[in-house]
């Protein structure tokens, strides 16, 4: 007979080893990228524009584009996803149609991003004539992002116990007020996690953007804040290569002598950008959560 204590010990050690492997791989990956890339990252690198044939270019435009596109696509997709998730979780009747809808959304969230990119290319770039632009890119990212965000917010809302909804209703507060003031604050930390994960995917996304936001970064005049001017960084109709697309491009068609270094440095910056965004979003989420729920006091 096998001693259950020993079985238990073996199982625990096995799980520990598996967890250790995951941590090791991650640490190796992050360490490798940072060690390879960080030596080339400098203030100059971050703040000067990229060059197309000579060495010594930077990534200022790409860095800005990545953040700008992230913010824009979140601005579009977050309200829609929130609304859809609230409807699905709080109001939708439990029938065939709604469950089909829910399943479709889940299927959509595993749609390959290159398909989304091609769709965006055909529809927004060509048919609607938006061209390779921030707008086309933001819409493609929204398509790509919406199902993931909706599903994750819906799950966050579903995790708030029904007791909380009953409590609100029993106090003569309307369902809507209960959702806004009780359910969403309670779900906030988990919603923020969903947004952070989605943002990480957006920042790293290349395939959906190559055909929509384009692969070029025009010369930008940082003091020109008129969004209708072609040299303004805010202009939504200009092409905008992001960091991820930049990394892809210089690796596939290296026309610059320092492609290897720039690619390594860009990867390190992209990684740090994701970390920083992650931290900021969680901090912000925490502050709001504490304000609304008296948590942590």
């Amino acid at each position: 007979m096998i001693n259950s204590k020993i079985t238990n010990k073996v199982a625990i050690s096995f799980i520990r080893i598996l967890a250790g492997i995951v941590v090791l791989i991650l640490a190796f990956l992050v360490g490798y990228i940072l060690i390879k890339g960080l030596p080339y990252v400098s203030w100059h690198f971050l703040t000067s524009p990229s060059k197309s044939v000579s060495a010594g270019g930077g990534i200022s435009g790409q860095l800005f584009n990545s953040i700008y596109l992230l913010v824009l696509s979140l601005l579009i997709s977050l309200p829609i996803a929130l609304g859809a998730a609230i409807y699905l979780n709080e109001y939708a009747p439990k029938n065939k149609f709604v469950s089909t809808l829910r399943n479709s959304i889940e299927v959509l969230s595993s749609l390959p991003s290159v398909v989304v990119g091609l769709f965006g290319f055909m529809f927004f770039v060509l048919k609607f004539g938006f061209g390779f632009s921030i707008l086309s890119g933001a819409i493609a990212l929204t398509f790509f992002n919406l199902p993931i965000l909706t599903s994750s917010i819906e799950n966050s809302l579903a995790a708030v116990p029904n007791l909380q909804r009953e409590a609100g209703v029993a106090l003569g507060i309307s369902k809507w007020e209960t959702i806004i003031h009780v359910i969403i604050p309670a779900a906030l930390p988990s919603i923020v996690t969903g947004i952070v994960l989605a943002s990480g995917r957006i920042l790293g996304e290349a395939a959906a953007l190559i055909f929509t936001a384009g692969q070029s970064s025009p010369v930008l005049n940082w003091t020109n804040l008129n969004p209708f001017s072609s040299t303004s960084p805010l202009n939504p109709m200009r092409p905008a290569e992001t960091l991820a697309v930049h990394i892809w491009k210089i690796n596939s068609e290296a026309t610059i002598p320092d492609a290897v270094q720039i690619s390594a440095a860009s990867s390190a910056v992209l990684l740090i950008l994701v970390f920083v965004f992650n931290l900021i979003a969680r901090r912000l989420g925490n502050v709001i959560f504490k304000k609304m729920t008296a948590g942590g006091k």
Binding site: P161, L163, Q164, E166, A167, G168, A170, V182, P185, A186, M292, T293, A294, G295
Partner: peptide, 9 residues
């Protein structure tokens, strides 16, 4: 109700 349900406030 049966189970205490204070708000997370």
């Amino acid at each position: 109700f049966q189970r205490p349900n204070p708000f997370a406030k």
